[in-house]
């Protein structure tokens, strides 16, 4: 039951997502996030690591990236990133674990 709901949510998300925005999210991720999130936790696509974080909701996660948390510097150490860029990258990251 739950997996059915999850699958349909994922499908909905895919349908709703604007493909150019998604590509942009990936680009930003590669440029500004991958050096950490491919190498250290929470890693891209690691469902166990992201499960508790998903529950916070996207807005809260974007706010956390802007403020910084633990080893993640404010704005991921890249002051040139806009809130929109960060949101696109977070979208991309969340899509990998949905």
């Amino acid at each position: 039951m739950r997996s059915l709901r999850d699958t349909s949510l994922a499908l909905l998300a895919l349908l709703a997502a604007d493909p150019t925005a998604a590509a942009e999210g990936e680009q930003i991720y590669v440029k500004a996030c991958a050096m950490c999130h491919n190498a250290m936790p929470p890693k891209l696509g690691d469902k166990k690591a992201w499960e508790p974080r998903l529950q916070q909701g996207k807005e809260a996660l974007v706010a956390t990236v802007i403020k910084g948390k633990g080893a993640m510097p404010p704005k991921a150490g890249n002051p040139a990133l806009s809130e929109k860029d960060i949101e696109a990258a977070v979208d991309y990251m969340l899509n990998q674990v949905k």
């Binding site: 440029k31 050096m35 950490c36 190498a39 250290m40 080893a71 150490g77």
Partner: peptide, 15 residues
């Protein structure tokens, strides 16, 4: 993060 970079062998690299 500086500590992480050292811990991970000064070998992490960017894009």
């Amino acid at each position: 993060f500086g500590r992480q970079f050292k811990l991970r062998g000064f070998s992490m690299s960017g894009p």
